[in-house]
Design a protein around this nucleic acid. Structure first.
Lengths: 155, 155
DNA sequence: ATTTTTGCAAACCTTTTGCATGGAA
DNA sequence: TTCCATGCAAAAGGTTTGCAAAAAT
């Protein structure tokens, strides 16, 4: 909870205007859970009959990304996905079945980065880690299907 | 060295035809060092006055990616970059100054992935790790500039 | 009253696709 | 000869931009 507030607070704090469009975008984001794309927000807005331009959505998302309250991921297809997030360092685990995104903290990456630096001679400044797998819910669904003798889904 | 050969070998091994266009693409890739985009190859081909269609380059790159001899990265801008690589699991360290790409092996990521799985409840199947920093050469250049009393480059 | 934002539509870019022609095996 | 691969040009996405109108401070 409080997602809308934190997004708007970030805008306000940074001296940007609290416009209707931005409030709407914050709202749309808060109404989502997990990954979403700009197109998702466009669709959501339209579904709720709230009018806003596509460009404005992109612009707001850009702004929120700059402010660090939303993170932009590069998807393989060339589109971008966004996730609202705390400005602390973390990584994402993404469910290959349902798209749910879970944040996890460092988990020992610091050591890995140091080791990489040692072996490569680079000064490592940043890293991006994305993990892909199956979330607990989808694992549960699998188990249920199996118990019921259902056919297995393709890997 | 031997990059062209290994690319062509992969094609041959997999039963794909060794066409002129594919040889050319292999050549262009071998002539590169580090990251490159499809557009880079198009430009290289044109510069050498070797004619090949843009679509063919994309198709060849796709094929090589499937064969695992080239890896495709998703760049922030929405384009894709490619790197020739061994088919073993590894990660990339990318120099923010010169774009050089160095491959590093696992370096303890397995433990991190396991830890993430434990905390999140996900079954983690894959991961992608990209590290960014400054390569040894650029670090050296920095040091030299500093010694000479030169002004520091922007981070 | 000023300055930032919005909306729309057009522009942009990279990547993909349809289809007739050309080239490998 | 028989498929597979190529080229071209057009289509498709997704994202960005120019500019006049609208809204916020």
């Amino acid at each position: 909870m409080g997602t809308v507030a934190s997004l708007l607070a970030a805008l306000d704090r940074s001296g940007h205007r609290l416009t209707g469009a931005r409030r709407l975008v914050a709202d749309l984001i808060a109404g989502r859970d997990g990954l979403f794309t700009a197109a998702d927000l466009v669709a959501d807005a339209r579904a709720q009959r709230r009018r806003i331009g596509r460009a404005t959505i992109f612009r707001s998302l850009d702004l929120l990304t700059e402010l660090g309250v939303v993170e932009r991921l590069d998807l393989p297809g060339g589109e971008h996905a966004y996730v609202p997030c705390e400005p602390v360092h973390h990584h994402h685990v993404i469910c290959l079945r349902c798209g749910r995104v879970t944040e996890v903290e460092d988990c020992g990456m610091g050591a890995v980065a140091r080791e990489v630096a040692r072996r490569s001679g680079y000064r490592v400044e940043r890293h991006r880690l994305e993990l892909f797998g199956v979330c607990p819910d989808c694992l549960g669904a699998d188990a249920a299907a199996r118990d019921a003798g259902g056919s297995r889904r393709a890997p």
